[in-house]
Design a protein around this nucleic acid. Structure first.
Length: 597
DNA sequence: GCCGTTTTCGGCCCGACTGTTTTCAGTCG
């Protein structure tokens, strides 16, 4: 069982307990463990084999360890099943409706035995909810609005990082023009942490001290509400404005004083569990941390508030980069001074995965080369699709050989950048590569990936990729999990076996930067790093503009604790080529073809 | 259900906002 599945069972149990009116701490304990599982690099199934290791996890005691083992053994949990006899499973859907939480859902169930979104909508339309304690006409309308939104969103209500990134930049630029009173606009939240999907946007606006503070804040808030892209205003408080943009993205803008910027940035960057851990740490020494400051509990004396660095320092922690703030061991590492020195965008020297008009790209070899040169890269690899990917006009052996010649010729026309001839060769259903080894032998860089038969059983998919890795010409395994953000789940396979094989054969794995992919995630990268598997960060560009997506790959790598030394395309070109899996000697290519065929 | 220089009971992160109320409960992040 995967960590995610165990977490879901625990989380649903927590939600049901809360609806059932359990004590706050009881359901929190389930929630906490579910959150922990989301950021664990080890498989819970492995940890559970060792009683001691399992109970070393924070928040896991005798009972919780027992529950986890039960879930692993049976796929479910008796308490959850018991609660689902009391309440229908659909009741959990109601919790996803804005303005409804466990208390109100419990009340609705008690009064009307309603547990479906449709049933709830009917009651709201008939005006039957307004007389419930704590409800009114406005509550009914909000529930109807929320129910409609819930049904429309069907998906997760999350957005790809590039969408959120672009929306944030535009809105931030707009707010900057609000007037004198605005000093700075900063994006926080999961966007700052570099998550591949963003639920909503958090923007922090610092205000210059003026004569009438509240008047300035009100003026800026009014200005923000006039942003042309606003679909609806969701909230408007003293120092917060919430909007729904036309795209469906929700934005929370906080207007604050400069003196509490650090505390606010820390708070609104999250993650939630990181914040909780920091607050616990503050409590331990008699302090309390909120979005305004770190203060003493007794007397409310401010300890730190202006910068994040200051707050971490007072908590006796090294500064933790936003990408690491997932409560995945970063606090312990900060305490010990063993945090990684994360890779930076400027460390990347070459992009190793891109397409040209030869297959399904929009630009020529020369155009890609020029664009890469402008971005300061000393080298790139041009890797068009191979013939099996017919929809992308993949290249067969003959066309690949011609493409190699064209790349060599283009190198003369675009001086100042080394153009490596590559291919994104398809891994066929049976694990063989889609180009003859004689042709692969003539390429500088062989990138390989799966583009078809993505629903194989785990065993078959694992064997398929293991077989591909055993081909001595495969050097980089591209988009290794096949996940498409918000559209397709990753392949089912044994990723540990794949990574062990990659380590053994010197195959690098790709951290694919294309925002629709970003499929090799933080946890995968950490697993790769632990095994000493080399990492390549590439864009999978299909046009010159896509080359900028490299920043999302670097963010993702940073989330995976990746350092410059872990990434092969941070090396100068000669060292990079030497770091690739060495190719068999040319004369053995034919024999290798026969063997792998 | 977990945890502990506030340690075996009693708390569990904390504050803003909303909509309902006349001081607060519930939701949200």
């Amino acid at each position: 069982m995967e960590n995610k599945e165990v977490a879901r069972v625990l989380f649903e149990t927590a939600q049901l307990l809360e609806i059932d009116g359990a004590m706050i701490g009881r359901y929190r304990s389930y929630e906490k463990v579910a959150e922990l599982l989301g950021s664990l690099t080890e498989r819970i199934e492995d940890l559970a084999k060792d009683e001691k290791k399992l109970k070393e996890l924070p928040g896991v005691g005798d009972s919780m360890a027992e529950h986890i083992r039960e879930i692993l053994a049976t796929g479910d949990y008796a308490l959850r099943q018991k609660l689902l006899k009391k309440y229908p499973p659909t009741i959990l859907e109601l919790l996803h409706i804005q303005s409804l939480g466990p208390k109100r859902v419990a009340l609705l169930w008690k009064m009307f035995e309603v547990a479906t979104v449709d049933g709830l909508e009917k009651l709201a339309r008939e005006g039957k909810l307004r007389d419930l304690p704590g409800f009114g006409e406005k509550s009914e309308q909000n529930i109807l609005k929320g129910a409609e939104q819930f049904k429309n969103l069907s998906g997760s209500g999350r957005f790809r990082i590039n969408t959120a990134d672009e929306e944030a930049k535009q809105l931030a630029a707009y707010i900057q023009h609000a007037g004198e009173a605005v000093e700075s606009v900063t994006a926080a939240g999961s966007l700052r942490r570099g998550k591949e999907t963003i639920g909503d946007l958090d923007l922090l606006v610092t205000m210059r001290p003026g004569r009438d503070k509240q008047k300035d804040v009100d003026a800026v808030a009014d200005y923000i509400l006039k942003y042309p892209d606003v679909k609806r205003q969701l909230a408007h408080g003293e120092n917060k404005v919430s909007l729904l943009l036309e795209s469906g993205l929700q934005v929370d803008v906080r207007l604050l004083e400069k003196k509490c910027f650090g505390a606010a940035l820390l708070y609104f960057t999250g993650s939630k569990s990181h914040n909780v851990a920091l607050r616990g740490r503050a409590n331990d020494v008699g302090w309390t941390l909120n979005e305004y400051a770190l203060t003493t509990i007794k007397g409310g004396k401010t300890i730190a508030s202006k910068t994040e660095e200051e707050i971490y320092s007072k908590l006796k922690l090294a500064y933790i980069e936003p990408e690491l703030r997932e409560s995945a061991g970063e606090i312990e590492a900060a305490e010990r001074g063993t945090l990684p020195k994360l890779i930076e965008l400027g460390d990347i020297r070459g992009d190793l995965h891109m397409h040209t008009t030869a297959s399904d790209g929009h630009n020529s070899i020369e155009e890609m080369a020029e664009a890469a040169k402008q971005r300061g890269y000393p080298y790139i690899a041009l890797t068009d699709h191979s013939k099996a990917v017919t929809v992308a006009n993949g290249l067969d052996e003959k066309r690949t050989l011609e493409q190699i010649k064209k790349i060599r010729a283009a190198e003369q026309r675009v001086p100042g950048i080394r153009l490596l001839a590559g291919s994104e060769v398809d891994i066929r259903k049976d694990g063989t590569l889609d180009l003859d080894n004689e042709v692969l032998a003539q390429l500088d860089v062989v990138v390989a990936s799966v583009h078809s038969h993505m629903n194989l059983e785990a065993k078959e998919m694992t064997d398929r990729i293991l077989k591909a890795i055993e081909n001595p010409y495969l050097q980089i395994l591209a988009h290794p999990t096949g996940r498409l953000v918000l559209r397709r789940e990753p392949f089912e396979y044994d990723i540990e076996k794949i990574l062990d094989a990659a380590a053994k054969h010197g195959v690098a794995v790709e951290c694919n930067s294309y925002p629709d992919r970003l499929d090799f995630k933080d946890v995968h990268l950490r697993m790769a790093k632990q095994r000493g598997v080399k990492i390549a960060i590439s864009t999978d560009s299909h046009s010159t503009r896509n080359l900028d997506y490299i920043k999302y790959g670097v963010l993702t790598a940073r989330r995976g604790w990746v350092e410059k030394k872990d990434v092969i395309n941070t090396l100068p070109v000669d060292q990079f080529l030497a770091a690739l899996r060495p190719k068999p000697q040319a004369q053995t290519a034919k024999a290798a073809t026969r063997k792998s065929a």
